[in-house]
Amino acid sequence: MSASNAKRGVSFYLLAAFFTLFVVFLYGPMLIIFVLSFQGETGGLTFPMRGTSLHWFSDLFSSSRYGDLAGGFRRSTGLGLMSMTITAVCCLFAGLAFRSRFWGSGTLFYLCIVSLVVPGILLGLGISQFFQILGFRLQWWLSGLGAHLSWTLPFGLLIMFAVLNRYDNAWDEAARDAGATPRQILGWVTVPILFPGLIAVALFGFTLSYDELPRSILTVGGKNTLPIEISNMTTNVTTPALYAIGTVTSFVSFAVIALAFGLIAFIQKRRARA
């Protein structure tokens, strides 16, 4: 270690400084919001802190000034769970199908990926027009779900490809050789082996939907999801409750991710137990 210390040139320090800036930029704003959400009752939107309290958290849940936050949270969670389930199931089968290079698979793949590139707000506009032409009312659980899937499905598929990269098709063949039916192969071999990867796909399905704003604005109809409610708050609300909601939603996201990683670690530990 000390030998390499002596050899560190200018480039090392430049890159280290760059990296430090990157980390500060990444976590600094989040940290400020986190700290300010504990602002005292008389405090405002900026530093200095006037004492610390949990006032703005309780204000968030008791006051009606902030719009339908609880409803937004419920809808966003529901939408996230629906997107998660559909994404995990569809991406599993789509990924398995793409293992063999069927006719038109390349074209199909690019068609799937295009909706990642299209601007979300435009896609939302298109979807809302489309649903109205078909005569459906815009609902968060219908057109809203469709808009979210246009985002989570291609993303999930890309992750599924990475997961399947490490899957040996000989496992399926070994099961087939033992006489297993396609359904038994899927249930006893393919899905259990891929399970940690599927959790990752599901996790992305949930979080991408949970905090999606551009695709939601024009598609959810009369009842807003949480990101829309928060977005509205930023223009109306001038109290640290704004930061409190930021802290709460960040905490939910982190909790979901921690849960998922915990589950993956648990499964892998059980498999590799000595």
Partner: peptide
Amino acid sequence: RTGNRGTALMFQNYALFPH
């Protein structure tokens, strides 16, 4: 059907189920 013809195949890299 495969697995129903009285044969058993041992794979090159064994293909043991990792789980």
